[in-house]
Design a protein around this nucleic acid. Structure first.
Lengths: 193, 193
DNA sequence: CGTTGTCTGTACCGATCAGTCAACACTCGA
DNA sequence: TCGAGTGTTGACTGATCGGTACAGACAACG
């Protein structure tokens, strides 16, 4: 058996993800990634199919590590209204805590790139659907438990909440400060009150 | 006096704006612009300072032609609640009518580029503030006239509405269809009801 | 008609891009 | 010990990037 790789693919994907996240797909060069990872050009092309392949894998990793696991965790919260509140709180917190103001890789991609590539478009679309489904589930659960009023229309409300999520993530990159973001999050909670 | 320009600067800016709008700043090359306008490279650099200068001018033109004039028009509507409704309706309509799904240049820029350049950052920030101010004004006017309830908290609500605007524009690029966008717009109106 | 000053068109610049390739390093089974 | 097979490396490719230089086209003056 031959020589083994000197790096973990998932580590490289993680670091590549950070670069794509910060700079965007178009503005990220392979050299940026080799600089960030320390992996040489040839090794990178030996392990991956190229820039696009790396980006897709980064998106998948982002989805699994950051989004899906977070939503699964929140689904274990007893009070669904509290779960949604926690969701928005963590969103605002993540936005405020990031000194680079990178926003959310999913939405950054939705704007920069989704109109150009079908693979990526689908990943973005699925990621957003996942959030909508989570919110719909929580709203329905809340209505069953009686701490979200029946007057709340589940599907339109879930979609509006996602739109607010997008707004928070985009405006959090610079246009809105702490107070404004918290106000928006509060308005989101008001939508299910 | 010497030879005059064979093109209108504002025409070139308009066409360059379309290219930037569709492809994003980083992904747009000078060749893309010369192709789209028919202007040769040298003439373009003779008339403008370069790619960045062209982009800033395109952003300014977008702001003036599309945003500011629209908001001024809506401010002449008697019923401020109706003005906000029309604002969201036209937003959804513009999003649905665009076959290229370009979204909004302002928000596209907010995500792709605002973290890299201070001039552009300010333009984006000011553009968003303009919309917030418009919405605050209409909400206050509606409260005075009595067709928006006093229980609506002007500033947080205006900010949430802008967040929904962003959401509609971003999600309208692919993730959300006609029904979903209209539902989100309706939820926006519900926020001031 | 010639001078003057601006605009046009294109060749060209160095830098950088994504991606390739062949020489070399290394491990392991035979 | 050596060949097979994989990983690493850095030089290299052709294309394209943003931007420049300059020769020629043109119009308004004298």
């Amino acid at each position: 058996m031959p020589w083994e790789k000197s790096f973990e693919e998932s580590d490289v994907i993680e670091q590549a993800m950070e670069v794509f996240w910060e700079k965007g797909y178009a503005a990220t060069s392979i050299s940026d990634i080799t600089d960030a990872t320390g992996i040489k050009r040839g090794s990178l092309y030996n392990a991956f199919d190229g820039k696009h392949d790396l980006f897709v894998r980064a998106l998948l990793k982002y989805g699994g590590d950051r989004r899906t696991s977070k939503l699964r965790m929140l689904e274990t919260v007893d009070d669904p209204r509290e779960a949604i509140t926690m969701f928005f709180d963590s969103l605002v917190k993540a936005t405020l805590d990031d000194p680079d103001k990178k926003g959310c890789l999913l939405f950054n991609t939705a704007l920069e790139y989704s109109s150009h590539d079908d693979d990526v478009k689908k990943l973005v679309s699925d990621g957003i659907k996942e959030v909508v489904t989570f919110l719909e589930g929580q709203i329905n659960r809340g209505k069953e438990l009686g701490n979200i009023p029946d007057s709340v229309d589940t599907r339109p409300t879930a979609k509006a909440l996602v739109a607010l999520v997008v707004g928070i993530r985009v405006l959090g990159r610079g246009a809105f400060g702490k107070t404004a973001l918290r106000q928006v999050a509060q308005q989101a909670i008001d939508l299910i009150s």
